[in-house]
């Protein structure tokens, strides 16, 4: 078994990937050929004597503000913000784990407030400022929360880390000088199955002390 994303396959029998198409690109192209057309004229419904637009169930043109950029996509109303970020806009920092609003790996900021992007429909997130973990690093320099995670060994497998970083940033913006109890409650929406909570608590304390 080999991972198509692995740049250095160990198996000497393995042929170089002549197409130069990554697994993610391949999935995207194959998906595209099946689902490309069909953004129809909006349907209307009568509601209390007025016409209102009925979106979907097919694809609807949508426009987003993500990390300060205007981005457009045609999506079905049932697509969550998380799936739109990952599958349409290549922003794979927010992770899909429980997909039920419990684990916190999909945390992003919506108008500066942390939310579970799995629990918001993309269509609802239009006209809101969406901020993902990808925007935190500025000019090649890690965000203070990211740097504190590195300094305090606050991740092990790393899968929960992007969600935790966004949640920690939002938490520290609101509580610049948190007590240990504030930290326990304020980060209760993110889970780490490796159990790196001590490192995360230390990382938060470091940022709080520096007053970043």
């Amino acid at each position: 078994m080999r991972d198509d994303d692995d740049p250095n396959p160990k198996d000497p029998e393995a042929k170089p990937d002549v197409s130069g198409v990554s697994r993610r690109d391949f999935l995207k192209i194959s998906g595209l050929s099946i689902t490309l057309p069909l953004v129809g004229e909006p349907k209307m419904a009568m509601a209390a004597g007025q016409q209102v637009v009925v979106h979907g169930p097919g694809k609807v043109p949508m426009e987003f503000s993500i990390n300060g950029r205007r981005l457009k996509a045609d999506l079905e109303p049932r697509v969550t913000l998380l799936d739109a970020l990952r599958d349409q806009f290549e922003l794979t920092g927010a992770k899909r784990v429980c997909d039920r609003g419990e684990c916190g790996t999909c945390t992003v900021l919506l108008d500066n407030k942390p939310v579970y992007s799995c629990s918001v429909l993309a269509i609802e997130a239009q006209r809101k400022a969406i901020t993902t973990v990808e925007s935190l690093m500025q000019d090649g320099k890690l965000h203070p929360v990211q740097q504190a995670f590195v300094d305090n060994d606050a991740s092990q497998c790393g899968f929960c880390t992007p969600g935790f970083i966004v949640a920690c940033k939002a938490f520290l913006d609101r509580h610049p000088h948190p007590t240990p109890e504030d930290i326990r409650h304020g980060l209760s929406g993110n889970l780490c199955r490796c159990g790196t909570y001590n490192g995360i608590r230390k990382a938060i304390a470091q940022v709080a002390q520096k007053g970043a």
């Binding site: 349907k43 509601a47 209390a48 209102v52 009925v54 979907g56 169930p57 609807v60 079905e76 429909l121």
Partner: peptide, 19 residues
């Protein structure tokens, strides 16, 4: 998730009549 239609009424009366 199954496909669905999505409507955003702008008043209570609209919402009630759509339900």
């Amino acid at each position: 998730m199954r496909p669905f239609e999505y409507v955003s009424p702008s008043s209570r009366a609209q919402a009630v009549s759509l339900l």
